[in-house]
Design a protein around this nucleic acid. Structure first.
Lengths: 219, 219, 219, 219
DNA sequence: TATGAATGAGTCTTCATTCAT
DNA sequence: CATGAATGAAGACTCATTCAT
C-alpha cells in the first residue's frame, strides 16, 4: 500500500524510458545517428530536452542501449539456430539469411556497430569522444554472433560437409560475404539491386556452395 | 627558365592541394564525413580555414575529388583485366584478387569511396547539404567500375561457365563478397584474421566455386 | 498565486523579448540591416548569440516583428481620422500632421519600417536571404496604412475638393511629400531646420494647397 | 620621347582606373554597396583583387569617388538652371524634375549619400568604419545642391512669386517633397506607382502650386 | 520530477586586406 | 606593375549539455 506511489512512479519512469527508446530508434533508423538531435527526440515526445537527461546520461548512451538490445535479439535467434539438431549446412544457411535480414531491418544499428564500431574499436581513444562503450558492445555482441558461426563451422567440418578444415577460415569467409552484402545493401540503397529475397538467398547459396565438399564426382 | 617563378608557384599550389587531400582523406576515414570540419582539416595542416577555399570550392568537393580519384584508379586496373583474352572465369579470379588487394593497399581511399561515399550518395537531399554531385560520381565512375565486373560476368555466362543466367545477379554477389572481405579486413584490423593471402585467395575461390556451373557429376 | 512561478517566467520572457526588440531596432536604424549581426545584438544585451534563438526564429523575423508593430500602430491612429465625419480635406490635413508627428516621435520605428524595410522588401530574392515575409508585411500592413490615405483621397475627390481625379496619384504625392519631410528631419537632425511645428504645418499646407481644386477665381 | 613610356604608363593607369570605376558603378547600382565585394569587381575586370588596391585605397573610396563624380554632374546641371535668366518659378520646376530624375538614374549613389550619408553624418564616428569621407561629400555636394535651390527660392521671393517669405522654409519644403518622392520610388520599386513621368511632373507641380502666391482671386 | 532558459563551442563559408614575389 | 596566396575576423545558425527553479 505504502509503496503504491513509489511503484507507480517506477512504472511511469520505465514507461517513459521505453517511449524515449522507441522514439529514438525510429529517428536513428530514419535519419542516421548524426542527424538526430536530442531536441528532435524530445520534440517528438513532447517533453523538454532536459528531461531526457533524467533517463539517459547522454545521446550516445541512448543509442548504445538500442544497439545492445538489438544485438541481444540477434544473438538469441542465432543461438536457437546453433542449438537446432539439423545438419550444420542447413543451419548455416538459415543463420546466413538471418544475419542479412537482421542487418537490413536494423540498418542504423548494424552500420554503427559493425562499421563505425569496427572503426572506433581500432582507433586509439582520442581525447574527445569516448566511444569505449560502443566498442564494448562490439566486443561482446559482435563477437558472440561470430562465435555462433564458428561453432556451426566446426560442426559442419565434423560432419565432413566442408572442403575446408579450419573453422576460422570458414567463419571469416562466410561472415565477410554476409557482411559485404548487408552493408552494401544498406549504404547503397539507390543501387539497382535485383529482387531482395532472391539476392539474399543467392548470396548465401553461393557462399555455401563455395565452401562445401565437392560432390565426389565419380563413375 | 623564364617561367621558373610561375612554375614553382604552380608546383607549390599542387603540392598544397595534395596535402589537403591527404589530410582530408585521413580525417574522413577516421572520423566520418560529418565529424570532419573544414577547421579540423585546416588545423591539421596549420593553415587558416579560409585558405582551403583557395583550393576547393567547398567541403563536399574535397570528398568528391577523393572519390573520383579512387574510382578512376581502380577502374583503370580493372580494364586491363577485362580486355585480356583469357577465359572469363580466370579473369574474374584475377579481378577479384585485384579488387581486394587494391582495397588493402589503399585502405583510406577504399573506405572513403566505398563506405563513406556510398552512405553520402544515398543520403536523401535535405535542404542543407546537397550530395547530388557525389551521387553523380557514383552513377558514372562507380558504375563504370562495377560495369567491368558485369562485363566479365556476361562473358562467363556466354561461355557457359556459370550456373546463373543474370549477369547483374552475379555481379552483385561477387562484388558484395569482395567488398565484405575488404572492408572487414580494413576496419577490423585487430581481428585475428588467418594469413592474409590465403584468406583472399580462399574468399575469391569460394565465390567463384559458388557461382560456376556444377561439373556434371556423373558416369 | 499557484502559478506565480509560471507567471514570473512568462513575464521575464516577455521582457527579454522586448529588450531584444529594442536593442535590435536601435542597431538596425543606426547601422542598417546588413551591418547588424546577431552577435552584435547579443553582445549589446550581454547574452549569448544562441539565446536570441529562444525568442526569435531568425534574424529577419526580428526585423519583421518590428515592422509589423509600427505599421499597426500608425494604422490604428490613421483609422480614427478616416472614420471621422469631417470634410475630407480637413481629415487629410490632420492625417498629414499625424503621419509626420508619428515619425518624429518614433524615429527609430519609422526609419526601420519606412526606409530600411522598404529597401529589404524590394531586394530581389537571391539564393541567400529570403525576404518574402517582409514583402508580405508590406503587402498587407503597409498597404493598409496607405489605404487609409487612399480612402480619404477618394472622399476628397468625391467632394470635388481636388484638382486631381486619380486617388492613387494623390495618395502617392501626399505620402511621398510627408515621408520626405519625416525621413529628412529624422536622419538629418543636424540640419538647420526652421522651427519644427511651423515646418510640419507648412509642408502639409503646401501639399494640400497643391492638390486642391483651384478656387474658381473671378466672375 | 624619353617620357613616352611614362606617358603611356600614366595613360594605361588612368584607363584602368576608369575601367574599375565603370565596373564598380555598374555593380553598385545593380546589387547595392554591401553586396558588392572587391573580388566581384576584380572578377568582372578579370584582374586580381590585389590589383584594385593599386588604384584605390579601399572599397569605400571607390564608392566615394563615384559619389563625388555623380554629384558634381548634378551640381553642374543645377547651376545651369540657376544661372538661366528665366522666371524663378520656371527654373524651380526644371530643378525639381532634374533632382528626382537624377536620383532615379543613380539610385545607389542617391540613397547612400542622402540616406545612409545623412545617417552617418549624424552618427558619432564609431571605432570601426570611418565614413568621414562620405560625410564630407554629403556636406559639400549635398549642401551645394540645396544651396542652388535656396538661391532660386530667394529669386522667386524677390519676384513676388511665392506666398512664403523665408527662402529657407521654401527650400526645406521643396527639397523634402522631392526627396520623399525620389527615395520612395527607389526603395519601394515594387510599389504600384502610377506612370513615372506623370508622377514626377505632378509632384513638382503640386509643390510649386503649394508655395506660389495665390492668384489674387477677385472681380 | 520536470522544465526550459542559457550557454559555449562548434558548423560552413565569405570577405577586405596584406604582402612576398 | 601586377599577382594571388594567405589570413583573421566575421557572418547566421545549431546543438549537447547544464542548472536554477
Amino acid at each position: 500500500m505504502l509503496d503504491g506511489i513509489a511503484d507507480r512512479r517506477a512504472r511511469e519512469k520505465a514507461s517513459m524510458r521505453q517511449e524515449i527508446l522507441d522514439a529514438a530508434r525510429d529517428l536513428f533508423v530514419r535519419e542516421g545517428y548524426d542527424h538526430v538531435s536530442i531536441r528532435k527526440i524530445a520534440a517528438k515526445l513532447e517533453i523538454s530536452p532536459g528531461s531526457l537527461y533524467l533517463h539517459f546520461d547522454d545521446k550516445i548512451s541512448i543509442f548504445e542501449y538500442l544497439c545492445r538490445e538489438t544485438f541481444d535479439r540477434l544473438s538469441a535467434r542465432m543461438k536457437a539456430i546453433v542449438d537446432d539438431p539439423a545438419p550444420a549446412l542447413d543451419r548455416l544457411r538459415r543463420a546466413g539469411r538471418l544475419y542479412v535480414e537482421f542487418g537490413l531491418e536494423n540498418p542504423q544499428h548494424y552500420m554503427l556497430t559493425f562499421v563505425l564500431g569496427g572503426r572506433l574499436a581500432a582507433t586509439p581513444n582520442t581525447a574527445e569522444g569516448d566511444f569505449s562503450r560502443i566498442k564494448a558492445i562490439y566486443m561482446t555482441a559482435g563477437f558472440e554472433c561470430l562465435g555462433r558461426l564458428h561453432t556451426m563451422a566446426e560442426h559442419a567440418i565434423a560432419e565432413g560437409a566442408l572442403r575446408f578444415h579450419n573453422p576460422a577460415e570458414v567463419t571469416q569467409i562466410l561472415w565477410s560475404g554476409l557482411h559485404g552484402l548487408t552493408s552494401n545493401m544498406i549504404t547503397k540503397c539507390d543501387f539497382p539491386w535485383i529482387e531482395r529475397t532472391r539476392l539474399v538467398d543467392s548470396m548465401v547459396d553461393v557462399l555455401l556452395e563455395g565452401v562445401r565438399s565437392r560432390p565426389t564426382a565419380q563413375p
